[in-house]
Structures are given as C-alpha cells and as structure tokens.
C-alpha cells in the first residue's frame, strides 16, 4: 500500500465520527430544524438533571448510537482528549472545594458529596457532547446550513445566508487546516525543531507558515467560488417537516418536563 493511500485511510479513520455519516435511520430522516430545537431542549434539561434523569438520558443516547450505527470504539478514540479534560474538571471539582481544610478530607460525607457533584458535572458534559455527536453524524452539513439560515431569517440586521455559508465553509475546511498544521509540524520536526526548547519560538515558527498557507488557500477558494458564479441569491434545498418531526418534538418536550419533575 502506498503512503498516500495509507495517509488517506488514516485521515478517514480520524474524521469519521464527528462528521455526517450517510445512513437511512429515523434520525437521519428528521428535519434539521427540529433536530436543533430538540438538541437544545434536551441539553437544557440535562444541565439540571440528577442521577435518575441522567440514567434515562444516557440509556436513550446509547440506544440512538446503536440505531444510527456509530461505532463505540471510534467514539472513545475521538473523545480521548475530551476525557482528559473531564478528568481535569473532576479533579478540580473535588479538590478545589470551598473549604479545603484537613477536616474536609476527614469528613467522608463532605468528600463523598464533592465526588458525587463532580461525577454529575462530568456526566452532563459528556452527555451533551454525545448528543452533539449524534446530531452532527445524522445531519447533512448542508441541512444544518439551511436550518441556521432559516433560524436567522427573522432578524433583519443579521445576514443569515452569509453566516450560514461561512459556517459551512468552516466545517468543510477544518480538516484541511488540520492537515496543513500537521504537515508543517512534520516538516519542522524533520528539521530538528524539537531541539529548540522555547515553546514560544516553536509556536511562532508554526503559526506563521500555517496562517500564510491558510490565507493563500482562502484566496484561491474565493476565486474558485467566483468562477462558479457564487452569489447569496441562490437556490436552496427546501427543508420539509412532516408529522413525524412534530411527534418527535412533542415527545422531547414531554420528556424534558418529565425529567425536570423526576429529580425534584
């Protein structure tokens, strides 16, 4: 296998989970606008959720992950850095307690309460991230763009179309920017940049060429878009909502109300 195809396979492996995964599940068929509203409602509900509600929500998320065929292994791989962040949050919540006296560690009920509290915070954060992952992997980026445009339409001073186009271009170009940064890092490592211990020097030497290439690519992109007659007045794919979208929204609202009553 040549290096190029190995490199491509590696990129494919790295970018599979946090991107749209074309499948034919129930969630894939839902209207993006309804999905965004449901996502926001459930996220808000989860902020105030305690153990029982979180168990219900987590079971629901796991069921959805199974139905939309996302591999748990790739989720764990993708979220590896997020788990480190969660570990920091956990430590901070437990050890940076309001009263860090010796009695805090001797008083097990206080310590236990802090640990419980930290677990809940991490659980909620992980839940919202998993929800986001499900949303991104079941919704076409173009549908997200059109939905954002639709939500921004009532605001007269916000150029919804432009914001939505910028958003979709960012989604499209994040992998390219990451590739560019990776390539520059490799090129600099091969020329011994690791021998320089000053992190500021290394950061400057990385940022300048990466930014230069990104601006250059952005310029070429603008020319290519112009060559294909880009304008804000263009045909948009219509989002169609049906009975099932309203049923799901109603279900989510009921679930949120139920969850808010369970733990209180």
């Amino acid at each position: 296998m040549c290096f190029a195809s190995w490199h491509e396979n590696r990129i494919m492996a790295e970018l599979t989970v946090f991107n749209f995964n074309p499948k034919n599940s129930f969630l894939h068929k839902l209207d993006a606008r309804f999905k965004i509203v449901c996502f926001i409602l459930i996220s808000i509900a989860s902020i105030k959720a305690y153990t029982v509600s979180l168990v219900v929500l987590t079971c629901l998320v796991f069921y959805i992950i199974l139905t939309v065929c996302i591999s748990f292994k790739s989720i764990l791989t993708e979220l590896r850095f997020f788990f480190i962040l969660l570990a920091f949050i956990f430590i901070a919540r437990v050890f940076i307690a309001p009263d860090l006296s010796a009695s805090y560690f001797k008083n097990f009920s206080l310590l236990w309460h802090s640990i419980y509290d930290a677990v809940l915070v991490c659980w909620r954060l992980l839940f919202v991230v998993l929800l986001g992952l499900i949303f991104v992997s079941t919704t076409r980026p173009s549908d997200i763009r059109i939905a954002v445009e639709w939500f921004l339409m009532p605001f007269p001073f916000i150029r919804g179309k432009r914001i939505a186009t910028m958003m979709s271009l960012i989604i499209r170009f994040v992998p390219l920017v990451l590739d560019q940064a990776r390539e520059t890092i490799d090129a600099q490592r091969s020329r011994g940049v690791e021998n320089r211990k000053n992190p500021v020097y290394r950061l400057i030497k990385l940022i300048i060429p990466v930014m230069y290439r990104i601006f250059e690519k952005a310029d070429k992109l603008a020319v290519a878009m112009e060559a294909r007659c880009f304008s804000e007045k263009r045909t948009n794919k219509a989002l169609l909502s049906g009975k099932k979208d309203w049923i799901v929204l109603f279900g989510v609202i009921c679930l949120c109300i139920l969850l808010s009553t369970i733990d209180t």
């Binding site: 390219l176 690519k217 070429k220 878009m225 007659c229 263009r234």
Partner: peptide
C-alpha cells in the same frame, strides 16, 4: 483549477457539485 482542495466547497460530493447550479438559481 490546479489545486482541487481549494475549489471543492461542498461538505459532501453531492453538495459540491450542486454548488454551481444553485448559484445559477436553477
């Protein structure tokens, strides 16, 4: 163009090809 990466604007293959016709307001 010479560099295909900088002229592909769609998030999927289908969306990218649709970009031009959509700009023509078809």
């Amino acid at each position: 163009f010479q560099d295909p990466d900088t002229q592909i604007v769609g998030e999927t293959v289908f969306d990218d090809v649709a970009f031009g016709p959509e700009n023509l307001c078809l």
